[in-house]
Computed example of a mutant assay.
Amino acid sequence: MRDNFRDAMPGAYLAGYEMPADAMLTHPWLDSLELAVRRGQAVYRGLLDLKKRGFIPDVVLVHPGWGEALFVKDVFPACRLVSFCEFYYQAEGQDIGFDPALPTSEDDKLKLRLRNMVQLQSLSCMDVGISPTQWQRQSYPSIVQDRIEVIHDGIDTDTVKPDPAARFQLPDGRWLTSNDEVITFVNRNLEPCRGFMSFMRSLPDLLRARPHAEVLILGGDSVSYGQGLLNMTWRQALLEEVGSQLDLKRVHFLGKIPYTNFLKMLQISSAHIYLTYPFILSWSMLEAMAAGCVVVGSRTAPVEEVILDQENGYLVDFFDTDALVRIVASICSARESQAQIRLAARQTILDKFDLKRHCLPKQIALLEQGIN
């Protein structure tokens, strides 16, 4: 910043700035924008080809965040453009800066704001949006919220349901059932955003408190959200930190398994742990509730939108590992007393998130609205 008083009015302070030497080069913060524009251009050309062949869509359903929605209306101005409004980035108050152990730089925050440029342009063209939860809708600017309907993707409760006869086979060949004490934890990939650090740091005390419990950990070693580590995975890093304190014969890292096995794992769970930053709600938490699990969830949005503490599950501070151990140990020590929680958890999904009975009919009605 340089001072420049040449044209300043009396009493006014005029501060100037120097243009950077590389001002004519593409800024690295625009990498995601560049990719989005190229996606949008590719979709634009594909839509032109469809139009030449006589295809005129009534409805186009698209995610506004990646570029595909940018030029849809330029080809089909009369179509009903429906945007899946999953998440709007914020530099504060959501996932960014939530975990003090993983601080965010000022440059990271500024770069994040630019990632919304594609969404803002896409949202300006949409006729209506769909967000899975109220919290996700509220992440969007107020100027578009009144055009976003809250309809969840839906849980197939005919498939995801309790099964007292379920059996799950461990990698060592042993079989577990609901008669065993089983603690479950699920991430798409094991990473801090979904509470993997907090969970792993609670395990030594949890295993000491429940000496007969088996812990099933489902998830891969890639990165879905946030940053990875150099030269190791988050699983390796946390095992280096607490692995010497664990009875690894009772802690089972399952990686990624077939969906039918995932359901069996939920169906035998004594207590299911779901932790997340203030971020997109995972299907797995709702599936766990639909399967009749006793879910211990983090007291973060949008978990609080679904779980009412001690009514259809339990809530715990994301960083309070002592409380997490205490609540899970209490659930495991009195599993028979959790029957009402299990019933209430499933009923919540049936009442609000059932795919066939609630969510899908609302989705179809939204898509058909205004079509002649």
Rank of each mutant, 00 (worst) to 15 (best):
G370R: 02
G67L: 02
D354Q: 03
G243T: 14
S270I: 04
A237V: 03
I151L: 03
G243H: 09
M117G: 13
A291E: 07
L207F: 07
E92G: 03
I96Y: 15
D74T: 09
L230T: 11
R53M: 12
E149N: 08
D247N: 10
E305C: 00
R115N: 13
C332M: 14
E240L: 09
P28M: 09
M117K: 13
M1V: 15
V59P: 10
E18S: 12
L367K: 06
F196T: 07
V182G: 01
K356V: 03
I364T: 06
N116I: 08
L254E: 11
R6L: 15
G93E: 03
Q134W: 11
R208D: 10
A209F: 01
D74M: 14
M9F: 14
L120G: 10
P77M: 07
P20N: 07
A36K: 02
I371A: 01
I331V: 15
E191L: 06
F262N: 03
F168A: 06
M200Q: 00
V325S: 00
K356C: 03
V325A: 02
S330K: 11
I217G: 11
L238V: 02
P57A: 04
N372R: 06
L203K: 00
W175L: 15
K52I: 10
G54K: 08
S222G: 14
L25M: 13
V325D: 00
L263A: 05
P100K: 10
L203Q: 00
Y89R: 15
D156A: 09
G228F: 09
R174G: 03
T26N: 12
G65C: 09
A291V: 07
T276S: 15
E191M: 01
A42T: 13
V303D: 08
N312H: 02
A36R: 07
F185V: 04
